[in-house]
């Protein structure tokens, strides 16, 4: 094994979580496109309309709304989880902080400002707006991704909705009208409820159940009452 080969293997191993899930995301997104196009063409065939190729489907509002409605809910889930777990607790869950640590915690605990360490990110050591932004950056970015995805869902959803309405010989509606439509809210809410269920399930099931070796779980032998302990 050369030093370069060892470094390369080290890179893949060091980043395997992101790389594996990123690659799986692209594969599944491709599979969604294939199945989505097939379903869309089935609808067109019923009305005797021109069926479309995969390239056209990838550029269609039907594909865009199906993708973005799921994206927005995932980013909303992480945004709520990141901000919610600052204040909300679950006794016995590794997803929760210890019960006496609710809130944003002290600068000492968070290694900020005067308590920053030599290897702390530069903005963590500042005492101005940069610290304020950086200390919330994970949640803020998730919130921005959520809002952008939701906006994209609303825009592409309106287009897909209007394309369907035209096929049904109905007049199209404006974007503002679409925001008040059942289609927009049904797409949004059906995703939100599933994300909230997943978070609540994870918070409570991790109190009593274990996954050996996973940082999302407590150590197998940890007591049910141990809070804020990761395996």
């Amino acid at each position: 094994m050369t030093a370069e080969g060892s470094r390369e293997r080290g890179f893949w191993r060091s980043n395997s979580l992101t790389l594996s899930f990123g690659a799986a995301f692209l594969v599944v997104l491709g599979a969604q496109a294939v199945s989505g196009r097939a379903e869309f063409n089935e609808q067109l065939a019923v009305q005797g309309l021109q069926q479309i190729g995969l390239g056209d489907y990838l550029m269609s509002s039907d594909f865009a709304v199906d993708v973005t409605e799921n994206w927005q809910s995932e980013f909303l889930q992480f945004f709520l989880y990141i901000f919610g777990t600052v204040y909300l607790l679950q006794r016995g869950s590794p997803e929760s902080k210890e019960l006496h640590k609710a809130g944003t915690e002290s600068e000492r605990d968070q290694h900020m400002g005067d308590h920053a360490r030599p290897d702390s990110p530069r903005w963590a050591a500042t005492k101005d707006w940069r610290q304020a932004v950086y200390s919330r950056s994970l949640g803020l970015v998730m919130a921005v991704f959520f809002l952008l995805s939701w906006l994209a869902q609303s825009v592409s959803g309106a287009a897909a909705f209007n394309e369907l309405r035209l096929r049904q010989l109905q007049a199209p509606v404006s974007w503002a009208s679409y925001l008040a439509s059942a289609d927009f809210w049904n797409r949004s809410l059906q995703n939100w409820q599933s994300e909230l269920l997943a978070v609540a399930s994870m918070a409570i099931l991790s109190v009593y159940l274990r996954q050996r070796g996973s940082p999302e779980s407590k150590p197998v032998g940890a007591s049910h009452g141990a809070t804020g302990v990761e395996g």
């Binding site: 550029m59 865009a64 709304v65 973005t68 906006l151």
Partner: peptide, 15 residues
């Protein structure tokens, strides 16, 4: 990627 999809979504809507 998010930006790309947002652009595609916008294009597909206003496009």
């Amino acid at each position: 990627l998010l930006g790309a999809v947002a652009v595609v979504a916008a294009l597909s809507a206003c496009g």
